[in-house]
Design a protein around this nucleic acid. Structure first.
Lengths: 334, 334
DNA sequence: CTGAAAGCGCTTACAG
DNA sequence: CTGAAAGCGCTTACAG
């Protein structure tokens, strides 16, 4: 910058002013002279120095369990796009659902003076969230509820309603022997879905404890759960998986073992990840508005960072996407 | 830091020394006193200030066309993991194959004083790469070759060999009417595969210009290409897609239209993304060692950054992964 | 309309 | 073993 200033015969102050587009108080000719020099020397301002004085880095961190999981990949993409749009960069932190790793990342992000973080927690993130809070770093939680802290910003879908939609959908198609593949209840959003399932299935009189198994939100998790379910040799009309990746794993396991979907068994997923429609049969699923969640979370975070907004929780609607993995059961056969 | 220094009755210099683990020249008692204070006040050093003086940010940028594409998601994950392991953060830049966006990101990254970048280019990235070079920022190109600059570091798989493996595999299974779904040849790595295909199919005497169509490396691209291929009503034994996502799209289109794979038509992919094995039938494909590419690229970049290494190109082996989407054709039927 | 000077929070070469 | 001081490259409040 001094170079530019010297060459233009002005002070650094003036150069700084024109680079920051402070329209005021610089003559057109000086401005032009500086701009020309900047272009000529391909000068790129030092953002680190800038950040040190302004205490603003225009970067946010995003912490998520697994970028290779299509759900989070989609979310990361939307967040990155929106962030770019608002003038922010994104530091990607893959936590592998490991709390210690999350905490390490949080400290690193804070030391880098990030302006805020979007946080999809893997488990109990109390410590990390407290560090964030005590350092006054804005954050918004997505997808994974946390219960360890009081009041915070978050964007979620209406999980309970989503589960209810799914169960009622199966019920209305005359499914009565419904299995449910739950997520690990140490993950709060999984627990929420599980509780909602229990609640609504009891209400409809189709609750069956034996037909509920808990597993990981992963393809392997879905396969394992399905294997378990089949091994108990009970009648199953439909399996409701509490995530699409699980459902996809389950479908694979079933097809491999000679089941026809949905003739022999119906499959319902949860999430509506982009590849859900790729399979044959296409997966019927409860959609979480992944893109909207990401977009909303990023907007909310930026608003908080820029002081235009208080902490708040936003919950978005789910949606039943009817495709080909669930059949109607005829009354006489049930 | 001054706070800590004051409370410990030492100078900032000393605090700095112990925080940076310069074992030398600080008494054990002073060291302990400082460490205690740091813990007590949960002090997190200001990395931005640090970076300003050291000219090192310990962050790298990764530029890729689409994080939602499973190929790049896998790569990003591996790179992020390895970077973390080496003490680096990762800024994620999704370029949507847009050169202008790439260039904008590059300038931003440079202004943030990133230590290096891993670059999966979408098209002609001459300008971006030149900016990087003239600012002396180390970079390593992955997956997508570039021809616009002279000498650079890169990690790729042996694309030509991979294509050759695929074609020979089909040929040895007595496929003669082989269609090829090429990527857009403005992408150099696609062009390379296409040229290799032409070369080897001519050598084997199975070259057929009509059976080659060009499309995008995407699910939709694969579907569209397949539709096109079927519309020309020529005999096709097998389709070789130059990427897995294309192959998956193609399979979907075929199954939807009543084709049985591999009975009616064989399908061969390229990449071996993680979901290739999820489908039924499981996709036979030419594997690119995605994880190894990511890992190697990150290691190479860090080595260059830390001055332990010159620019170099590394090419990794491909591998034919035999699954269930290609059948053997019996001599009499061909 | 323009600029001198202080300050952001570190590290480092140097002196003691 | 310890510290004073300069400097990294910006921005900003203030003076002119």
């Amino acid at each position: 910058m001094s170079d530019i200033a010297e060459k233009a015969n002005v002070s650094k102050t003036t150069v700084s002013k024109v680079l920051n587009n402070r329209e005021i108080n610089v003559s057109a000719s000086t401005r032009q002279k500086i701009l020309d020099l900047v272009k000529q020397f391909n000068y790129i301002p030092n953002g680190v120095a800038r950040s040190l004085t302004t205490r603003k880095t225009n970067t946010i961190g995003i912490i998520l369990p697994d970028i290779e999981n299509p759900f989070f990949a989609a979310m990361a993409k939307v967040i990155e796009g929106m962030a770019e749009n608002k003038g922010y960069n994104v530091i990607l932190c893959n936590s592998y659902n490991n709390e210690k790793k999350e905490e390490k990342y949080i400290r690193l992000l804070i030391s880098k003076l990030i302006d805020g973080v979007i946080y999809a927690s893997g488990g109990n993130s109390e410590e990390s969230l407290n560090i964030l809070r005590s350092n006054k770093i804005p954050f918004v939680v997505v997808d994974r509820y946390v219960d360890s802290i009081d009041k915070y910003s978050g964007v979620f879908s209406k999980n309970s309603e989503g589960i209810e939609k799914g169960v009622r959908y199966l019920y209305n198609l005359n499914h009565r022997n419904i299995a449910f593949v739950a997520g690990k209840s140490k993950v709060k959003v999984a627990k929420l879905r599980n509780e909602s399932y229990t609640h609504i299935s009891k209400e409809l009189g189709v609750y069956n404890k034996d037909l509920i198994v808990e597993s990981d939100f992963s393809i392997e998790g879905g396969m394992k759960a399905t294997e378990e379910l089949l091994s108990i040799k009970k009648k199953i009309d439909a399996i409701f998986y509490s995530s699409d990746v699980m459902a996809l794993g389950g479908m694979k396991y079933l097809i491999r073992n000679g089941y026809n979907i949905p003739t022999d068994i119906s499959i319902l997923g949860f999430d509506n990840i982009n590849i859900a429609a790729l399979f044959e049969p296409e997966l019927t699923t409860v959609e979480q508005p992944i893109h909207e969640i990401g977009r909303t979370a990023c907007e909310l975070l930026v608003n908080i960072i820029e002081g235009n907004c208080e902490d708040k929780i936003i919950e978005l609607d789910t949606n039943l996407i009817e495709r080909n993995s669930v059949k109607r059961i005829h009354k006489e056969s049930s």
